[in-house]
Design a protein around this nucleic acid. Sequence first.
DNA 1: AAATGGAACAACCGCCACACT
DNA 2: TAGTGTGGCGGTTGTTCCATT
Length: 389
Amino acid sequence: MGRSPCCDKVGLKKGPWTPEEDQKLLAYIEEHGHGSWRALPAKAGLQRCGKSCRLRWTNYLRPDIKRGKFSLQEEQTIIQLHALLGNRWSAIATHLPKRTDNEIKNYWNTHLKKRLAKMGIDPVTHKPKNDLLSNDGAQSKNAANLSHMAQWESARLEAEARLVRESKLRNNSCSSHYSAPKPAELLTTAAAAANSNIIMPNWNNNVVWSKSTVVRGDLESPTSTLTFSAEKRSNNAVVHEFVGSSSASSETGMIKEEGEQDWKGFGNNNNNSTTSLNDQHYDQEGLENSLSFTSGLGVGGTWTSSTTSANNAHDVGIDVNIIAEDQGFTSLLLNNSDDRSLSDGGGCDSDNGTRGSGSGSDQHYHDNENYWNSILNLVNSSPSDSPMF
DNA sequence: AAATGGAACAACCGCCACACT
DNA sequence: TAGTGTGGCGGTTGTTCCATT
């Protein structure tokens, strides 16, 4: 017996929502929470399917949604995260407070994609189109795809390794015999394959070249959302802590706003085994001045804010600690990137675009301190910190 | 003023993963 | 363990708005 489609009932309304419907849905959820979406329409007196209600709520009615024009900062973040994550809109949305994945997706398709294309950057690979056309186009494209895939694969392997590690640590908290494979070991192949250059544009018509060195965020497998490890302290786990400070406005950065927590009470029965960014224990009152979060990691190694380029990281954003969670892994990555220094977190400043006098591929891959630094800087820093704007 | 085409956005559809029985 | 229900995600489509001719 097959499963019946969500909206197969005759008589269910489709199409645009009316203000009355919105009101009904809003009122019901405010009073009862959404509970089971499937059951909601009947209870709320709506001739809609549950799925439609859920979409309407998550994409439009939720109070913690910011609508309207995307800021430059947001645009930049989207582009960079897209280069990193591909079309994982929900993951990208995690880093854009108050924006929905649908909105970001639409904005990408209608604005950013075209703009990148106009600038001669392939919106899929984030590489210059010339690059793809010259040499062997198909080969380059394949390499780019491979890059994305490799990043995914590396993230997936990392997540798996961590899960195994965590469960082992819990089960054998006192055992020292466990030797889960280090992420670096798991990732060697993927990391090597993923070592490719990605372009970061800015809207001043400078194309900023960067070389991705496959430093990775804490990505999960492609089928799940981008999350950060909010691991409980286990016996063997080293817990890195990053404390940043910022005067950034709430418009940028990964700041959790009031509404997000408020709505947790509305029947949200998600029991994700992982903790999303939104679940990080942000101290709301302290957001404006300081933020702290921890990331437990089961692999040895220490990291301070000065050991990576993210020395000017502010706020909460991509989990900087994780990038340097494993020195072995980091070393591997650094080696793969021709031992490029990461100490100068200048991000994607104009320096990186000054390649006019250069020649050949070396200039082509002109140091940008690396692509990830830019992402980190941009996502983590206030707009005023960004040389881009 | 009407027609047309493109842009922007809301909503739908199909698939998938996970939880539950 | 298989079957089923549910929610989430990404791709796509439909509709509306607006500028141009």
